[in-house]
Write a protein that binds this DNA or RNA. Sequence first.
DNA 1: CTCTCCCT
Length: 868
Amino acid sequence: MTALPSLPITDVLDDIKQGIAQHQQLVLEAPPGAGKTTLVPLALLSAEWLGQQRIIMLEPRRMAARSAAQRMASLLGEPVGQTVGYRVRQETKVSKQTRIEVITEGILTRMLLQDPSLDGVGLLIFDEFHERSIDADFGLALALQGREIFRDADTPLRLMVMSATLDGDTIASLLTTDNDTVPIIRSQGKMFPVDILYGKAKRYDENIIERVSQAAISALQQHSGSQLVFLPGQGEINKVLQRLKRHLADNGITDTVVLPLYGALPFREQQRAIEPLAKDGPQRKIVLATDIAETSLTIEGINVVIDAGLCREPCFDPATGMTRLQTRRISQDSSVQRMGRAGRLTEGVCYRLWSEEQQQQLPRQSTPQILQADLAPLLLQILVWGIDDIHELHWLDAPPSGPLSQARDLLHSLGAISGTTISTEQPLQGWTLTPHGEQMAAMPTHPRLAHMLISSAGFNLSKQACALAAVLADRHPLSRDYGADLAAVVATVSGERACHSQHQAWLKRTQQQAKTFQQLLNKYHRQPTQTAPLKEQQQTGFLLASAYPDRIARKKTGSHNNYQLSNGRAATLDNADKLSNHTWLAVAELGGSVNHVGQKSTDRIYSACEFDAELFQQALAPLTTEKTTLEWDDSVERFIAEQVTAVGKLAIKSQRIEKIPAEEKRQALLALIQKRGLSLLPWDKPTRQWQARVELLRQHHSGKQEWPNVSDQHLLNTLELWLAPYLENINKLGDFKKIKLQEVLSHLLPWPLPQQLNELAPIKISVPSGSQISIDYSQNPPVLSVKLQEMFGCADTPSIANGQIKLMLHLLSPAQRPLQVTQDLAGFWSSSYFEVQKEMKGRYPKHPWPDKPQEAAATKYTKHRPKK
DNA sequence: CTCTCCCT
């Protein structure tokens, strides 16, 4: 090996060697340009503890993995694939001599799921860990558990986490074990000084196009050299592009060129933005870029950075199973990274279009992907690993339970898992992989597409499915020609349709990917289950619907391009898109955006194909549900019943039915009573009294047994239990009168409570005159209204419930007017009675008004009419 | 107000 070049990291290489020799893990913080990616693995290659074991280093991107391997190999004076090799999707360059393998993060997960011990690997290095991809987070969690369970003390798996702007202490605390600590080593980067110039305090999205353009124009006058402008997305880039081009033209500036740079741009145009300028053309450039230029691509010759402070990132919404793009303020870490792009070759300047004070308010780090992504792929792999509680793994940030539950439900609907949910806190508990799920997990693609691939064999459609999965696995360049129509794209991949020569590279890559899927499928030898073949124009729609059953769409009546989806949402097709000729679509990709203030745009359909609703009769019948809906029709005050066939929330057929099934009707009636209240039932006075009597005894805990709760609220809540059996003959509102409510309710009182009810809360009570008088239980305490004369001779207030409840006496005049309301009869007789006596004696002379009422004989008659 | 980036 030739001597390693001297870079900033060289100063700490000895510390790293020593640290990782003495400990089983190490954290290395070093900014870009320090040389860590190349020099650290090479420096550790001859370590004694490594022996003949390999070093594996992870890179977040294929390009980065390839070039890291390339640089290391050339330092060793070897071609790639000998001592140093790499593995990325679709491409492997390793041999038996390979000691350093550079791989992308997704490959590590696959390796660990196959061999959790990572046998033969002595050191695992996570590079660029601050990017916090799901795969890196998950890979670290698996590696930690794998080495704990499967590795011996004499050949431990060492872990090194390297990053530019990582919070080293947090990650160190995750790696710390009971008997080992974690050295943190920090190194300088190689960067020229960059002046940071802040702007005024503004809302980030306020007038962004004009402010960015002005900043670029003024920087053009103040500085020589080229600019890199960070904008959130394609839309903003194109607007600023127009604005700046106009400025250059208006002012006759010819030495400067403006170039866009974003992921969807054709490769050649991306190259134009990245490459050094041609000698004979303009000598300055302004590159307008998304954050593709923050990490993935390096642009030559930039000394001015203009940062709008915004980024656009995907946010998964578990409620709809859809990912929306959200425009957000960048993190402090991100602003540092962007600023650094101005100081790679010379001193530079960075304009931030926000104030220094606002800088302090930015979040320190970007949100880790695991907290806002679709977790279905992760969940499938977690289950392959064999745990049903995510907390068995050590996470820097655990996957959140909302998206995890949604992922579980999706996997369930795709047939990948079976079980029942036991706990909402542990969404995986009670669920296991099905054989179909295991096959899905072996497919290197999203579970939706894996399901589509595997089930396609049963319909003899695997060739189309492989092409479709390959197209959907990555962005395709044909939307400009075909619009949203995927069937045309699939036909191109299958070779049935030609495409422009500029897309040849994409076509070859996609066909290769389709072939890989086909080879994996061939291993399963699936027999066709469906004899009747699908018509050609049904095929793509069928495949898409099996992957995205929640995105089957029907055009809204009277609309040209607005569709209703089976997940209950609405989405719009581009106005000019030819697909809008079709009433039914099977949608693959759709999305919308959320702006800086949280406003959501309408969801748009980006890719789809025509769909034949006939498929619901046969091949896709399992996606449909049948149910009877009952709706109360107020005009006729009765139920209208329909038999509805639906796919998800989209009703595809409904038919009026005359004979309403008993159970559905019962449920609908119960719901109607819930909504309109108990007053729909034929309450009469005795029944209400009965209810009040039971309630009274319940509240006073009278007798030896508990009384059932018969309050209105409780009856409403328990309709199903006590009323449901009596609803059979109810078809319209008037029929409620047929219910014998008193009798129905009486079943709620078990023996011996009915008898006790009559004893403890009698309907009538005897008064001294011999009359049987009804007690009014509608008030509390219950009221006994009785003529005063009938109570003569009664010393104390009458009571019920074995003396527990005193009645409220309403003592009446001979004309039935209340003279006194009292719960204290003795007190009344001895005081206010005499005032009553004085006043009433004159008015009702024929009635007795004795001076000692407690001792007088009670009577319901006048003085002159003798008692019977 | 037309889709950020990346990966098995």
